[in-house]
Simulated assay, not measured.
Amino acid sequence: MEYPRQITAIQAAAILISTIIGVGVLPLPLFAVQSANTGAPMLTLLAVHVAYIGLWLITKLGIRFPDQSIIGYSRTIIGKGPAWIGNILIVTFFAVLTSLAAREFGEVVITSVLKKTPLEVTVLAMLLLATLSTRNDITTFTYIHHFYLPLIVFPAVLIVALSLKNAQVVYLLPLWGNNPPDLLHGTLVVASLFQGTFIYTMVIPAMRRPRRAMIASIWGMLIAGGLYISIVVAVVGVFGSEETENLLWPTLELAKTTTLPGNILERLDAAFLAVWVTAVFTTLFSTYYFTVHAMSKMIGLKDHKLFSVFVLPFLFAAAMVPQNVMHMYEIITIVGRFGLVLTIGYPLLLLIVAMIRKKGGASDGARAAENTK
């Protein structure tokens, strides 16, 4: 067996939730409003369904091949040569995704909190933290996500709930938007914020009962997707679609306008940023872990610790490529849409070929059946 089977379905769902809720929380309402104005909540709901297609595909593959990650079963399904090409593209994409998340973190920190701190320092600090964390095994990886989940979800839910008292229903009408400029583009951009769920391919082989992976994936997407939709509803309901388009990080502005009952805290943006930093770490932790873990499996290493430090300079260099914030988000949208081809198209290809060639499942799944008893 390739992985220790210690992860429960609840822990698997926790990994998905803490991975999805991350750096993309801040610009999420802006992305949605730019493409659908008042229809931003409906667009986000549609994006959640698109994102779940990719998660459903890798979950089905994980159940068919419960003892292997995507690096292993892709070789079984389509052969070593084609699998090598597909895996290289996947690893490269998640390496770029990790570097862009670190850069976005740095931009927010130097703009909102540490205004005199060099950008390079904040980016390198987050990457170093992730580097040290990725040297742990999959069990410790799970415990870290499970521990931080309440610290991410509950404060976010509280801020959204408190902000809704200032919302205006008229700002959310019409529900499908007023002549939305580009629903397809916006749906793909928002759906790309969920691509960290690809870490699930590493999680399923370590689950005690891989057959429960589908239930965990549904709950994970429901909670994370529901929170994302709630954030968009709150932002558009408070600011309106036209004002939201003028805000670079609308969710942060929402936290600034939210107060606790009794004016215990007049602004919650400082507390929200502390929660957001934790969310960024767990997301970047997952993408970084997938990158180094997949690289080690591709060349047959038993330990991925070597790559944890090896890829750090390359990730830092990639994070410094964008010239400014606007250039960074242009790159993020392009990379995100391209990534959907990989995170949805590649698993879809593998699942179709596996079904045609009758790989996995009943033919190769005797051990999987034993593990689900």
Results as ranks from 00 to 15, higher is better:
Leu151Thr: 04
Val309Ser: 10
Ile344Pro: 04
Thr117Met: 15
Lys305Phe: 06
Phe94Trp: 09
Thr139Leu: 12
Gly365Tyr: 08
Leu158Arg: 08
Ala51Val: 01
Trp276Lys: 07
Ala14Ser: 15
Leu252Glu: 00
Leu227Ile: 13
Phe65Cys: 13
Leu342Met: 13
Ile332His: 04
Gly237Trp: 08
Thr258His: 12
Ala156Trp: 05
Ala13Pro: 01
His49Leu: 14
Thr76Val: 10
Val292Phe: 07
Asp269Leu: 07
Pro250Met: 02
Val190Gln: 08
Ser296Arg: 02
Tyr171Cys: 12
Ser296Cys: 08
Val96Gln: 04
Thr333His: 13
Ala13Lys: 04
Ile332Ala: 13
Tyr228Pro: 15
Gly196Gln: 10
Tyr52Lys: 03
Ala130Trp: 06
Leu193Gln: 00
Gly220Ile: 14
Pro181Gly: 00
Val91Lys: 01
Val341Asn: 07
Leu30Tyr: 03
Ala369Val: 09
Val190Glu: 06
Asn37Leu: 14
Asp364Ser: 04
Val311Lys: 08
Leu351Pro: 04
Thr59Trp: 07
Ile90Pro: 05
Trp176His: 00
Ala362Lys: 13
Asp67Ala: 11
Gly79Cys: 06
Met126Asp: 00
Leu184Pro: 04
Ala101Ile: 15
Val235Trp: 04
Thr257Gly: 14
Ile58Glu: 01
Leu28Asn: 00
Val321Asn: 03
Val33Asp: 03
Gly86Glu: 11
Gln6Ala: 07
Tyr346Arg: 06
Pro313Ile: 09
Tyr171Val: 09
Ile144Tyr: 02
Phe154Leu: 15
Met320Gln: 10
Leu158Gly: 11
Lys60Thr: 05
Val309Trp: 15
Leu301Asn: 08
Ala224Asp: 01
Leu30Lys: 10
Ala216Ile: 00
Pro313His: 11
Gly62Leu: 14
Val341Gln: 07
Val91Asn: 12
Pro150Cys: 08
Trp276Phe: 10
Thr259Pro: 12
Phe338Pro: 02
Leu315Gly: 02
Ser241Phe: 11
Gly300Lys: 13
Leu284Cys: 10
Leu260Glu: 06
Ile299Met: 05
Phe93Gly: 05
Gln11Phe: 03
Glu242Ala: 13
Ile78Ala: 09
Pro174His: 03
Leu129Lys: 04
Lys115Asn: 10
Ile20Gln: 03
Asn166Gln: 15
Ala14Lys: 01
Phe307Pro: 01
Ser163Val: 07
Met298Pro: 07
Thr19Pro: 04
Ile110Lys: 12
Ala366Phe: 13
Ala213Leu: 09
Leu30Met: 00
Phe31Met: 05
Arg212Pro: 11
Arg267Ala: 13
Pro205Asn: 02
Thr278Glu: 10
Phe316Pro: 12
Ile204Asp: 00
Arg209Phe: 08
Val325Ser: 14
Tyr288Glu: 03
Val25Tyr: 04
Gly22Glu: 05
Leu265Lys: 12
Leu61Gly: 01
Val108Gly: 06
Phe285Met: 07
Lys373Pro: 06
Val203Pro: 08
Ile199Thr: 01
Asn324His: 13
Ile20His: 06
Ile344Gln: 04
Ala213Pro: 04
Pro66Val: 05
Ile90Thr: 06
Thr134Tyr: 14
Glu245Ala: 13
Leu149Thr: 05
Val280His: 02
Arg357Tyr: 12
Thr131Pro: 11
Leu222Tyr: 01
Glu243Trp: 04
Gln34Met: 07
Asp364Lys: 00
Gly22Ile: 01
Arg337Pro: 11
Thr8Ala: 10
Pro261Ser: 15
Leu188Arg: 01
Leu227Pro: 00
Val353Gln: 00
Asn37Ala: 13
Val233Ser: 02
Glu330Gln: 14
Thr201Asn: 07
Pro66Asp: 01
Asn87Ile: 02
